[in-house]
């Protein structure tokens, strides 16, 4: 009898956990997929990053008390995984093709510059790219980015500055209006 009760309790907890996790995943998967795509640069990489992050979240679900922190947890796993040197090298080797990288979908109002800027973003080193994605897509503060990346806010600032400098250097003049504001930052 005791065993049966224990088993039923375990099953109930598992059902609750799965229901909670499923609700979170349904609500947040499309948005987090977009972040994964910007980090990875292609759909295969994005799926791999996100599925792995969700799996680790699932394993840690009961330990995370602050449900507001879930997105941050998933982002942190995805960013760290994507920053791996060896993993990047694997992706470079395994996915080398003659075709250009996927450029995403552009709406009718895109004058083409968005695609070009995205191409330049894809050439940034992973940590700079992660800072750019978290800052300009997720619109996180420097402190929030520092928390996700496990680095200091000062390093976030310097990485962002380097990324912008690199984009400025690589972008054609048409994408790079002389802007005193950038220089000042």
């Amino acid at each position: 009898m005791t065993t049966t009760l224990v088993d039923m309790g375990t099953q109930d907890r598992r059902r609750d956990k799965d229901a909670d996790f499923s609700a979170y995943m349904s609500a947040r998967q499309p948005a987090l997929y977009r972040t994964a795509y910007l980090l990875a640069g292609d759909h295969a990489g994005a799926e791999d990053l996100l599925q792995n992050a969700f799996a680790k979240l699932y394993l840690s679900w009961d330990k995370i008390r602050d449900r507001e922190a879930l997105d941050g947890y998933v982002r942190r796993i995805m960013v760290n995984e994507n920053n791996s040197l060896w993993r990047r090298a694997w992706k470079r080797r395994e996915h080398t093709t003659d075709t250009m990288p996927e450029t995403g979908t552009h709406d009718a109002y895109d004058d083409g510059m968005g695609g070009q800027v995205w191409s330049f973003v894809q050439t940034l080193p992973p940590k700079q790219r992660a800072v750019v994605v978290l800052r300009y897509y997720e619109q996180l503060s420097e402190a929030e980015i520092a928390d996700v990346l496990g680095i200091s806010p000062g390093t976030v600032k310097s990485q962002a500055s380097r990324a912008l400098a690199a984009l400025r250097a690589r972008a054609p003049q048409s994408l790079n209006p002389h802007e005193s504001g950038d220089e000042a930052r």
Binding site: G104, T105, D110, G114, Q116, W118, V121, V132, V133, Y136
Partner: peptide
């Protein structure tokens, strides 16, 4: 950069898992 990232990612509505 902000616009480029949003134009790239926003149309994606995938939920593959």
């Amino acid at each position: 950069v902000h616009d480029a990232l949003h134009r790239t990612a926003d149309p994606l509505q995938r939920a593959p898992f």
